[in-house]
Design a protein around this nucleic acid. Structure first.
Length: 326
DNA sequence: TTAAGAATAT
DNA sequence: TATATTCTTA
């Protein structure tokens, strides 16, 4: 594993989060909030369900976000214990319980963070840090193991990779850390970063922004800076979108404008084939898209008007800044 | 030093 | 082709 591949986890995009909460409403709310930052969310009502999801390995996760109070079943602290014993997934506890004892107990049992309800967007945006931290830790461990395998001197333990651990619920579990690490590494590679898809909703926001700014000045002689990526991005107000995303889209948009206006305007040269016939017709995408009504636009506009109950919201304008890009 | 816009890569 | 990334310029 190279460091660069670790750094791929230095942002929330595509991180697979398993969220566990007995209350369907807060489960749903948390899910929506996480999706704003493009976490891949799996919901779960009961800890036991969550455990079997993790154990059967069908779906992999990068982080677990759990409540503490569950009506029946096992409680959150037990759940936390078991997960920590069987896996090295980072576990974040979310609860309205602000008693110091509870918090301390959770941290003692291995919670990597304890978030007070109501959860803030900023809290969720930063959860990737816990995944990254574990990732780097694993990296160090692996380097260590490899050096032991290569017969290099080792001052600490004798290269013991197996851990024996009892669990209150399913009997003892034998974990081969080394094998698991390899699997997880493979897994990490498989977590491809998502390629942006310009959905109708997204494109409509783009169009709205461009329109507000005034159609771009095709030649830069026009002093009033109009539809430039940064401005468009700001107006669109989609937290996970990057300037580069918009720039790329804008480039294509302008190209298509040019093509289309070629039919009307003489001043702008139109690409022609050998036969002198104008080539390149319209691109569907940039034809007049039907206006998206609030009802029709599900997730995306949801982000705009999402009501988080207590204080209505909210999409923070300061987007996450990818350190890779700086 | 930032960001726009073009060119190029995937 | 659509989108991402890199390069050049301001």
């Amino acid at each position: 594993m190279k460091l660069s591949s670790i750094e791929a986890s230095f942002n929330p995009h595509g991180l697979r989060a398993l969220i566990v909460d007995h209350n369907p409403t807060s489960l749903d709310l948390l899910s929506k909030m996480l999706q704003v930052y493009r976490y891949q969310v799996t919901q779960c009502r009961r800890p036991r369900e969550a455990l079997s999801l993790i154990r059967n390995g069908q779906s992999k996760f990068d982080i677990v976000i759990s409540g503490v109070n569950f009506s029946s079943d096992m409680n959150g602290v037990q759940f936390l214990e078991i997960i920590n014993c069987e896996t090295d997934l980072p576990v974040v506890i979310v609860s309205a319980d602000d008693r110091k004892d509870t918090i301390i107990e959770c941290v003692k049992k291995g919670a990597c963070a304890y978030l007070q309800k109501p959860v803030k967007m900023e809290d969720l945006q930063l959860l990737w840090q816990h995944v990254a931290r574990k990732e780097m830790l694993r990296f160090r461990q692996m380097k260590h193991i490899d050096s032991v395998e290569n017969g290099e001197p080792d001052s600490s333990n004798g290269g013991e990779d197996k851990e024996f651990c009892g669990s209150s619920d399913g009997g003892p579990v034998l974990v081969d850390r080394r094998r698991k690490d390899r699997e997880d590494e493979q897994d990490k590679v498989e977590r491809k970063k998502q390629r942006l898809v310009w959905t109708d909703e997204l494109h409509q926001l783009f169009l709205d922004a461009v329109e507000q700014l005034g159609i771009n000045s095709l030649n830069s002689l026009d002093q009033s800076i109009k539809a430039v990526p940064k401005k468009v991005l700001e107006l669109m107000n989609v937290p996970w979108l990057t300037r580069e995303n918009v720039a790329s889209h804008l480039q294509k948009y302008r190209l298509n404008l040019k093509k289309q206006s070629g039919h009307v305007q003489e001043s702008i040269p139109v690409p022609t084939s050998d036969s002198g016939v104008s080539i390149g017709s319209h691109d569907e995408l940039f034809q007049t898209t039907p206006l998206v009504t609030e009802l029709q636009a599900p997730l995306l506009l949801d982000h705009y008007y999402m009501d988080l109950g207590s204080n209505s919201i909210l999409i923070p304008n300061d987007r996450f800044h990818d350190p890779d890009h700086s």
